[in-house]
Deep mutational scan, measured.
Amino acid sequence: MDETGKELVLALYDYQEKSPREVTMKKGDILTLLNSTNKDWWKVEVNDRQGFVPAAYVKKL
């Protein structure tokens, strides 16, 4: 969790967005987890953008 109590995830792999609903991340990025109710796609925030990334590409910290 960060200082505001939000849950964080670590990008395990690079991911290039394939639609406007997704976000690009690089391996090693720390992202804010917004929603993990879907087992396949998690909603995150990175670089002031919100979108989805494959759940298998990130790990909760």
Rank of each mutant, 00 (worst) to 15 (best):
T37I: 08
K18F: 06
D40S: 11
T24G: 08
K6S: 09
V53M: 01
L31I: 07
Q16H: 13
E7I: 14
L8H: 09
D2Q: 15
N38A: 08
K6F: 13
V46W: 08
R21Y: 15
Q16L: 13
T4I: 13
L34F: 04
Y15H: 03
K39I: 10
Q50H: 08
K6Y: 12
V9E: 00
E7A: 10
E3A: 14
S19R: 08
V53W: 01
P54A: 02
Y15V: 01
G51K: 02
V58S: 00
K59W: 10
L31H: 03
L8K: 13
D2V: 15
D14K: 03
Q16K: 13
A55H: 03
A55M: 05
P20C: 09
S19W: 06
G28H: 05
T32K: 13
Y57A: 10
E17I: 06
G5L: 12
K27I: 05
S36D: 15
K59D: 07
N47R: 12
R21K: 10
M25Y: 01
N35I: 08
D2F: 10
K59T: 14
D48A: 11
N47D: 13
T37E: 14
W41A: 02
K60C: 09
W42M: 03
V44M: 01
K39S: 11
T37H: 12
A56E: 09
R21G: 15
W42S: 02
Y13Q: 13
V44I: 07
Q16C: 11
K39D: 11
W41I: 03
T32Q: 12
Q50G: 06
V9N: 01
E3F: 10
L61Q: 06
W41K: 02
E22H: 06
K18E: 08
L10W: 07
D2Y: 08
K39V: 11
K43T: 08
K18D: 05
L31W: 03
M1A: 14
V9I: 08
S36W: 10
T37S: 14
K60W: 07
L33W: 01
V44D: 01
L10T: 07
R49V: 08
E22D: 05
F52D: 04
D48I: 05
D29C: 07
K27Y: 04
E3T: 15
L10E: 12
N35Y: 06
E7M: 12
E22G: 12
